[in-house]
Every structure is written in C-alpha cells, then in structure tokens.
C-alpha cells in the first residue's frame, strides 16, 4: 500500500455544527500534502483528529496502517506534530527544549542530528536563549526541529507559517521540500493560497467540506472559464458596477485588480469596457490572465453554494 494517511467518511460535530463533514482523503507516502482553506474551515480539527488529540464522531483514519483511535499509542511514536500555536516551553532554552523532546521520544539530539541539521544550524547560535525570547521565524524553526528530532514518519503541521514574515515563510517551505527526501509524509495546513503551489497535492477545504483534491496545476486547469483582470482609476466603483452587470458570473477584488468571470462562454471584452465607460469609469484596462489557486477556491466556493 502506498498511502500513508487514509481518511474515509470522517465527520466531527461540535454542538450542532458539522466541523468536518464526510471527509475522504488519501495521502501518499512521502507526499507534501497541503490542506488549504480559510479560518474556521476545519483545518485544525482535522489535524488534531489525525494527531490523536480529538476523537472523530464517525469515519476512520488510518496512518501507516494504524488506526488513530485504537493505535494512538503507536502512532504518537511516529508522528512529528507542530500545533498552530507555539507549544514549546518558553522558559526553557532552545537546547533544553530540543533535549527534552529528544528524551521523551527515547532518542538523543546527536542520533538524529542529520535530519535537523539544516534547520537547527540556523538557530544554533541562540541555543542558550530561552524559547520565549526567539523571533517568530526562529520559534518556528525550533518547533520544527523538535517535531523532527525523533525522525518521524509523518509530519503534521498546523498553519506553520501563520504570523511569520514572508522571507521566513519561503525558507520554511524550502525546508519542507528538503525534508521530503528523508521519506517523511508531510501534511500541512495553511490559509495562504500562494503556498498551495508548493505542495505536491492540495485539498481545498471550506466549512468542513473538501471542495477539491488535486495537484496545484490541475486545480488551476480545472478552472473552466476565462478569467479577466480589470483595473481602473476607481476600483471600488468598478466592483460595484460589475456586480450589477447582467453578464457577471463572479467578480472579486485581488489587491489593486479585480478578477472577473463572465456568464457567456466567451466574454466580450469590448462590451464590458463600454458598459463600464457608460457608468462613468475611466482608464479601464482589461486583460485575460491564468487563474491562480485563490481564483479556483473562490469559484469552487460559489459552486458549492449553488
């Protein structure tokens, strides 16, 4: 069997809300798998169930052929888990944290030093500093080092890049890519769509439901419509006018631009321009672009609603 994590018809209910609704996912061995979705979509709940911290209401998960409910003890030995919130001891130093986690996993820092060398060497100059006094990026590197110190088979990362600067985020993803070489299955959740393209495969999750599971390239390919990027002098007015336009399928704001899809199979750029000019907008620029993950996500969300 080449799957590392098998999730089938998983459901978790909080009070009356379905936090997770019939989730089915198959994550291959050695895969860098991204769970992408906005806050409150159910990412943390799913990761915590896989991590044996929460019990599912129905459905099953097996990881490396072990059941998360029955075999949680064995699973905790092969997991590296990094919770969304920094969860190491802030009053212990970097090296004390690392040694502590190495010991509780029955190993030593020296034994698996190769695995964490690239990451740990960056924070080693600060090894006698207390974890609480590290910067966000360094904390995250320490947390990753601690999660890896026992050479886990499966790495579960819950929003590892939230609250981390752009440079550290990029570095972090490079580290994950490097880790794949060591036969580790990596399951990572993130609210940042731009990080999705760095994963082998991604699952888009919204309101406890998986919208799509694909490689990042295929997800954008599945985007069935032509996407237009529009900008003008007054973005807000254009947005408002387009929402009242009879052919508008979707219009969303992306930075300084608007991303627009049309109800017609082939959008008529000139007629859109004319409509906007009539409404008193100036300097209108329209061009066709390739959709990104976020466009796909928005599109899938609308589809899901209908």
């Amino acid at each position: 069997m080449s799957n590392s994590i098998e999730i089938s018809s998983l459901t978790k209910v909080y009070d009356n809300t379905k936090a997770l609704n019939d989730i089915n996912l198959h994550i291959k061995k050695n895969e860098l798998f991204g769970l992408i979705g906005p806050d409150g979509a159910g990412k943390t709940t799913l990761i915590r169930i896989i991590a044996t911290l929460l019990l599912p209401d129905s459905g099953t998960i097996t990881v490396e052929n072990l059941d998360v409910v029955k075999d949680y003890k064995s699973l905790r030995k092969i997991y590296g888990y990094m919770p969304g919130r920094f969860s190491l001891y802030q009053d212990l130093t970097v090296i004390e944290n690392l040694n502590f986690f190495a010991t509780v996993f029955g190993t030593t820092v020296d034994e698996n030093y190769d695995l964490i060398k690239d990451i740990y060497s960056q924070i080693e100059p600060f090894k006698n500093r207390r974890a609480g006094q590290l910067s966000g990026g360094m904390k995250q590197k320490l947390a990753l080092s601690c999660a890896l110190i026992h050479k886990p088979k499966v790495l579960l990362l819950d929003e590892p890049t939230t609250g981390v600067d752009a440079v550290s985020r990029k570095e972090f993803w490079e580290m994950l890519k490097n880790l794949q070489k060591n036969d580790i299955t990596i399951f990572v959740s993130t609210p940042y769509m731009d990080e999705a393209s760095l994963c082998d495969r991604i699952a888009l999750i919204q309101k406890g439901k998986i919208l799509s599971v694909e490689t990042p390239e295929n997800i954008t390919k599945q985007f069935g419509k032509q996407l237009l990027q529009i900008n003008s002098d007054n973005k807000y007015k254009v947005l408002k006018d387009l929402r009242n336009y009879e052919f508008t399928n979707s219009v969303n704001s992306f930075g300084q631009f608007l991303h627009y899809t049309d109800k017609r199979s082939v959008p008529e750029v000139q007629s859109i321009k004319n409509y906007l000019n009539e409404k008193g907008n100036s300097n209108i620029n329209i061009k066709e672009i390739m959709p990104n993950i976020e466009d796909c996500f928005m599109d899938l969300m609308i589809e899901d609603k209908n």
Binding site: Y79, P83, F86, S87, F101, F105
Partner: peptide, 11 residues
C-alpha cells in the same frame, strides 16, 4: 500555554 498539546502527541 498550549504546551500540553505538544506533550500529548508524544509517547
């Protein structure tokens, strides 16, 4: 402080 979350996923 949330450290229990990390401790719990250890053997």
């Amino acid at each position: 402080s949330g450290t229990i979350e990390q401790i719990n996923v250890t053997p």
